[in-house]
């Protein structure tokens, strides 16, 4: 069945394949174009370096007028990621624009990794460590990087 949402998701997929931004990859499930699996590689020169973080993006027929729901499938330790993997990112909420595509979402999340916003914490412990004990913060992040390889 072809709907504007599905057509748009196919275009997103083609764009992602033909012009992939560095450090991210993603593809719809073979049997359901509305659910995508994606991987973000931890940006270099950040505590997340070498991590391979898996995400699941779920779209509905309101896309691209409404954002998809995005959550990390890998364990994360980050000020703006909740314990259940959901994340707090403005462009996935009130700053959403229908011109964002999957590539734009994934690159935004990638930049959120090394540029957290500790003022609106989804994980209070990560936020306070990020502010007050950077060494311990890095150690905890490295743990998740290692667990992301499993």
């Amino acid at each position: 069945m072809s709907t504007p949402t599905r057509r748009r998701l196919m275009r997103d997929f083609k764009r992602l394949q033909s012009d992939p931004p560095g450090g991210i990859s993603g593809a719809p499930c073979p049997d359901n174009i509305m659910v995508w699996n994606a991987v973000i590689f931890g940006p270099a020169d950040t505590p997340f370096e070498d991590g391979t973080f898996k995400l699941v993006l779920t779209f509905d027929e309101t896309y691209p007028n409404k954002p998809p729901t995005v959550r990390f499938a890998s364990k994360m330790f980050h000020p703006n990621v909740y314990a259940n993997g959901e994340l707090c990112l403005d462009i996935l909420q009130n700053r959403w624009s229908p011109t964002y595509d999957v590539a734009a979402i994934l690159t935004s999340i990638q930049s959120l990794l090394h540029d957290p916003n500790p003022n609106s914490p989804a994980n209070a412990e990560a936020a306070s460590l990020y502010r007050e004990n950077r060494k311990e913060y890095v150690r905890r992040v490295r743990e998740t990087v290692e667990s992301s390889w499993e």
Partner: peptide, 13 residues
């Protein structure tokens, strides 16, 4: 419920 505050759909516009 929005009216005149509706912005251009462009990203961050």
């Amino acid at each position: 419920g929005m009216s005149w505050r509706i912005r251009c759909p462009g990203a961050k516009c």
